[in-house]
Amino acid sequence: MLHTLAVLVENNPGVLIRVAGLFTRRGYNIDSLTVCQTEDPELSRMTIVVNGDDQIIEQVRNQLSKLVVVHSVSDLTGESVVDRELALIRVQVSTETRSAVLQTVDIFRGRVVDMGRTNITVELTGDIPKIDAFVHAIQPYGLLELVRTGKVAILRSEA
């Protein structure tokens, strides 16, 4: 099962390699990893999506917590969270397909951010199933290139 871990780490050179190295060394698989500075410039926030059963996830959490550069680890899986991913997708278009492609982009509330003679680039934000669904829908027209950021997530505020 996929778990989303929110990991607060020191914002220093070498931190990413410590975290990534841990995953390689212990044989855990990273599905996606995003990292950026937080509101506190001394800290970075990593959102790591990792696959594994409960016992493996427990190990991953404990191993991460052990790193001196890791301040906290929380498993957002099963919690009430807002999660988003950004994707940039280049799609082939011709005079025949152009309007259908644009319609699809519209349905998914994407934005066209670049336009060439034979292709357009779409910016799409959403949770992972939405992006997957868009990729699936657009594929028949000719998917030329796809870049995804990986998931970022934050806990919902209490009601």
């Binding site: 016992q55 427990e58 190990q59 404990n62 191993q63 917590s65 052990k66």
Partner: peptide, 8 residues
């Protein structure tokens, strides 16, 4: 003392 060892 090391939580990682528990149930490893």
């Amino acid at each position: 003392i090391d939580p990682v060892e528990i149930s490893k």
